[in-house]
Design a protein around this nucleic acid. Structure first.
Lengths: 112, 112
DNA sequence: GACTTATATAAATGAGAGCTTATTTATTCT
DNA sequence: AGAATAAATAAGCTCTCATTTATATAAGTC
């Protein structure tokens, strides 16, 4: 399975997820918005939707001849976990820990 | 400036940042690790380092003929903010809020 | 000053990701 | 059943982006 960031490394897919963030939407509605914002065709959007489905970022459900898409939260964990590695570097409340890590690093450098 | 996810949508760059996460490292050390893990050349790594510098994910400092790289935390905020939109969907403690949002959405759908 | 080491830049190449057009599948309407 | 609508898939094209080789810059070493 490809890495979460590989999937999100595309502005169209990010935008689609933003749309889904405030509720499920039919493919057609998504196409409408995306096509106008990015000037791409229906199949192009459909292909992005497929990638989002296949990668587990979205789910789809049939509703007559429409397909309702929704965010599938699971994979967002992955991103959060990855970013977590760096959180102490920019979140003030992790400052103490950061300092400690820096000290350890300095000591390590001095060994070399 | 390109979106944070566009920069992170590359496994080599992600790995480089992981290496920097636990302390600054010289270009050469990074090349050593990355070249062995991804089988790419020194210039390839150097170009990724440039992208990380230019995009504000890393900083570099001269140290003799070496260049010490370190994580620049600023842009991680951006990722966290974006993921924040979805956090209520997978973090249990945001459940109540999620329910409320869903209710609002349902009401909105019924208006159309 | 010549040589080596460390890193960056330039130019050219190639693979893949995303796009387009055309078509297919599925569902609803008359 | 036939036409229309909604969405997905197929096949081919293009262009971006990561890579390579070759070279340049800069700092130490002898």
């Amino acid at each position: 399975m490809s890495h979460a960031f590989d999937i999100l490394g595309d502005p169209v897919r990010r935008r689609i997820l933003e749309l889904l963030a405030d509720g499920q939407r039919a493919s057609g509605e998504i196409v409408e918005v995306i096509a106008s914002e990015f000037a791409i065709s229906q199949p192009a959007v459909s292909q992005h939707l497929r990638i989002l489905r296949d990668s587990g970022f979205a789910t789809s459900e049939a509703d007559g001849r429409r397909r309702l898409y929704a965010v599938a939260p699971e994979r967002f964990n992955e991103i959060d976990a990855w970013v977590g590695r760096f959180r102490r570097m920019w979140e003030p409340r992790f400052e103490a820990l950061a300092t400690e890590v820096a000290r350890g690093k300095k000591a390590q450098r001095e060994k070399n």
